Amino acid sequence: MDLILWRHAEAEDGHEGLPDLERALTSKGQKQAKRMGKWLDSQLPDNSRILVSPAVRTVQTAEGLGRKYKVNAELAPDAAPEAILQAANWPASKETVVIVGHQPTLGQVAALLLTGEALDFEMKKAAAWWFVQREADDPASLYLKAVMAADLVVK
Rank of each mutant, 00 (worst) to 15 (best):
A88F: 02
L112D: 02
Q103T: 15
K34N: 04
D41N: 12
D151A: 01
T61I: 12
A140F: 12
V147T: 12
D120Q: 14
S93C: 06
Q43V: 12
A83C: 06
L144P: 02
H15W: 07
V154I: 12
P104E: 08
A88S: 04
M36H: 11
F131E: 15
V71Y: 00
P81F: 13
S48T: 15
M1S: 10
D78G: 15
I4H: 00
D13Y: 07
W6E: 01
P19L: 06
S48W: 05
V109I: 04
Q103K: 14
T26S: 15
D78S: 15
S93H: 12
L75Y: 10
L114I: 00
A146G: 03
K145M: 11
W130G: 15
G64C: 10
L18Q: 14
A24Q: 08
L5S: 09
E117L: 13
R57H: 00
E135L: 07
K38C: 11
F121E: 00
D13K: 15
L113A: 03
G107L: 08
W6M: 03
L44W: 06
D138Q: 06
M1H: 11
W6D: 00
G17T: 01
P91Y: 07
S42Q: 14
E82Q: 13
P77A: 11
R23V: 14
A118R: 03
A149R: 13
A118S: 13
A88D: 02
A62W: 05
Q133D: 04
L85I: 01
G66I: 13
V132Y: 07
L119C: 03
Y69F: 14
L142Q: 07
S141H: 02
I4C: 00
A136C: 06
Q60D: 06
L51T: 02
V153I: 13
L21W: 15
L75I: 03
E16V: 07
K155R: 14
K34R: 11
M123E: 07
A62S: 10
K38E: 14
L152S: 00
A11P: 05
L106G: 08
W130Y: 03
R67M: 03
R67Y: 09
I50V: 10
L25W: 07
A127C: 09
A136T: 00
K124L: 14
A118N: 09
W6H: 04
D20N: 09
S141N: 02
S93I: 04
P104C: 05
L75T: 06
F121P: 09
A83K: 01
D46Q: 13
G101R: 01
Q60K: 06
E16L: 04
F131A: 12
M148A: 10
S141D: 01
